[in-house]
Design a protein around this nucleic acid. Structure first.
Length: 596
RNA sequence: GGUCCCGUAGCUCAGCUGGAUAGAGCAACUGCCUUCUAAGCAGUAGGUCUUUGGUUCGAAUCCAAACGGGAUCACCA
């Protein structure tokens, strides 16, 4: 980064000295030189032909000569058409490498003084987590880590949707068919047990609807009139009135679900600094609605319902409170936005929520702005696309939903099977082996879901997701394990390499050069990922770094090298690759093994 | 219908703040393990970057339109 700035500066000077034109260094854009040409950075001269009054090659040639002469970091150059390719002094690269080696916080941004809240996961308590939730959880966790690495103060929160008609459905089915079953008595994980009754409700409900429809009732009408639905509605009403029996049942079943979720969260390695529960926040929004009416930015219709007019913002009129005075979805979110801000005065509030709610978040932000809330500007909807299966869309009704717990277990089984096939567990205790399978399984799964641009809809192909070769998590983990072996060997040989142990090194191989380039680039990547809220940027980087190292590893021997300086340098280089592979994978929430 | 998102190799995806001959992985084919872990490396083959116009010295990238796919527009959440 500093290197690029220095070169831009030099080019700016060169333009002034050679052609007498003034171009601000910040305007001098450099790009990485394509592999087929010599050099590290390329300056494009086309844009200056008019101003200078010379051809692009002439400009490149003249600038190159000036830079070779005057810029200490430029060793040589070549010109191809309008492209000036600059080769950087080897010692400059080595200096940068020594710098990052000694800088324990290389890539960690300076404290920004900014507070960022990241809300993610936000499950319903009527069924277990599925594949779509996994994308959400991994994204949220990773983005939080990336924002921390950018120097922000981050608060991770989970807004649990623990109330409403959906949980009443599970409760009702349980009352009718549960026979007192518990997670303990059945051996079923709590969230799955509750999910089971949700499915049972749905099945019985559907039968009732079909029956009514068979009697000639309109389908929509039948959906509302089905006795089970009516009972569920009654239950919800009782819940809101604080009916003791209903509330106790609700507490019991939600308790099961929370225990189940906790287990899943622990297993997949995500966590939260704070939980919010909709049962405690769903009424808060009414105060905001009141505020809006007072400020006359909301309006009341004849029937008493409250609305906000967002047509000026290119949206529609939106209902904020029903005629009967009860809340709708957005009412809650108005309330929780304020609550969250009071709890943690944020500069930014990130909501990791699927893209089906794009419109909702536009409305939320615009409405809060109408209320004059300064924090509205900080609201950012990290919208991500659905996860499709090769068979098409996931449909809970059609039973094609991929359960999170089952998927993780399958990944672990596959990791075990593959590892055993390759005979890679020699010398592992059973516990270590189990640990490794888990690390590999989660690495494969998380990497697979995070390497794709969040806003794109993605295809989850089970076969590919458990692949351990190519552009995968385990490939990167493998690179780390290989390096670890090298470092163990170096330690055994008593080789403690520090920056002074290779101060005479020179004549770097191209593969070594490439690895240094990747390493030096790490902070810029962290910054970009933070600006874009994009773990995929980190994932691609980790892969490129691992690939560059593997090429080096294959081509160049370390311990057979007779030149001690070169050998020491290569050990140090390896150690740094391990470090930044570990760092970048950590930003993805992926652990990295010492052996595999 | 309005609004928003997506369309790159057979498949899954990078590249998109405009720059050289558009890159990976998988699948196919060819080489490389008595030498630091072959879950690796090197190579071959595979492309009208959906289409058409525009801006520009230069467009996968920016703009417009069309086509295809998706989401959303509830007194649901």
């Amino acid at each position: 980064m500093q290197l690029q700035n220095a070169i831009s500066q030099s080019i700016s000077q060169a333009l002034q000295a050679v052609f007498g034109i003034t171009v601000d260094a910040a305007q001098v854009a450099l790009q990485p030189t394509r592999k087929e040409f010599a050099g590290s950075f390329t300056f494009v001269t086309f844009p200056y032909t008019k101003q200078v009054g010379k051809g692009p090659e002439q400009i490149g040639q003249a600038l190159g000569e000036y830079l070779k002469e005057h810029a200490e970091e430029i060793r040589d150059f070549n010109v191809v058409k309008g492209f000036l390719n600059l080769e950087v002094e080897e010692q400059v690269w080595l200096r940068l490498f020594r710098n990052l080696m000694q800088d324990q916080s290389y890539g960690q941004g300076e404290p920004s003084g900014r507070n960022v809240m990241v809300e993610y996961s936000s499950p319903n308590t009527n069924k277990p987590l599925h594949l779509g939730h996994l994308r959400n959880n991994f994204l949220g966790y990773s983005v939080a880590e990336i924002l921390k690495a950018n120097g922000h103060e981050v608060m991770k929160v989970n807004l649990v949707n623990d109330r409403g008609i959906h949980i009443c459905k599970s409760m009702l089915a349980y009352e009718k068919m549960g026979n007192g079953e518990t997670p303990e008595s059945s051996g079923i994980k709590g969230d799955h047990l509750v999910g089971k009754y949700y499915v049972l409700f749905d099945k019985a409900y559907k039968e009732q609807v079909d029956e009514l429809a068979g009697q000639g009732m309109d389908k929509e009408e039948a959906k509302k009139k089905a006795p089970l639905m009516q009972e569920a509605q009654e239950m919800l009403l009782k819940w809101e009135q604080g009916d003791e029996h209903v509330v106790n049942l609700w507490k019991k079943m939600n308790g099961w679900v929370y225990a189940g979720f906790e287990e899943t969260y622990r297993n997949i390695g995500v966590d939260f600094d704070k939980y919010y529960y909709e049962s405690q926040t769903y009424t808060l929004g009414k105060a905001r609605v009141e505020e809006g009416l007072q400020k006359e930015v909301f309006f009341k219709k004849d029937n008493g319902s409250v609305w906000v007019d967002l047509t000026e913002e290119g949206l529609d009129e939106k209902l904020l409170l029903r005629a009967d005075g009860t809340s709708v979805y957005i009412t809650q979110d108005l309330g929780t936005a304020e609550l969250k801000y009071n709890d943690f005065p944020y500069d930014q509030s990130v909501y990791v929520v699927a893209d089906e709610q794009n419109y909702h978040f536009q409305v939320l932000k615009a409405t809060l702005k109408k209320l004059g809330k300064a924090y509205a500007d900080g609201i950012y909807h990290l919208s991500y696309g659905m996860v499709d299966l090769p068979s098409g869309k996931m449909k809970s009704r059609e039973g094609t939903v991929v359960d999170a717990d089952e998927l993780v277990q399958e990944m672990i089984d596959t990791a075990r099977q593959q590892t055993e096939e390759l005979g890679k567990i020699e010398g592992f205790t059973q516990e270590e082996a189990a640990q490794l399978y888990h690390t590999l399984a989660m690495g494969a799964l998380k990497y697979f879901l995070l390497k794709v641009d969040p806003k794109k809809r993605m295809l989850f192909n089970p076969q590919e997701s458990i692949d351990f070769r190519g552009n995968t998590g385990p490939f990167i983990q493998y690179t780390h394990a290989r390096i670890s072996a090298i470092l163990r060997k170096a330690a055994e040989m008593g080789l403690a390499v520090d920056v002074t142990s290779f101060d005479q090194v020179g004549n770097l191989h191209e593969a070594e050069q490439e690895v240094i380039t990747q390493l030096v680039n790490y902070p810029a990547v962290v910054k970009e990922a933070g600006n874009l809220y994009a773990p995929s940027v980190i994932a691609n980087y980790a892969y490129e770094l691992a690939k560059a190292y593997n090429r080096f590893y294959q081509e160049i021997s370390i311990f057979n090298e007779t030149d001690e300086q070169a050998r020491n340098f290569r050990i140090a280089l390896s150690a740094m690759v391990a470090r930044f592979v570990r760092e970048s994978m950590k930003l993805l929430g992926i652990q990295v093994p010492e052996r595999m």
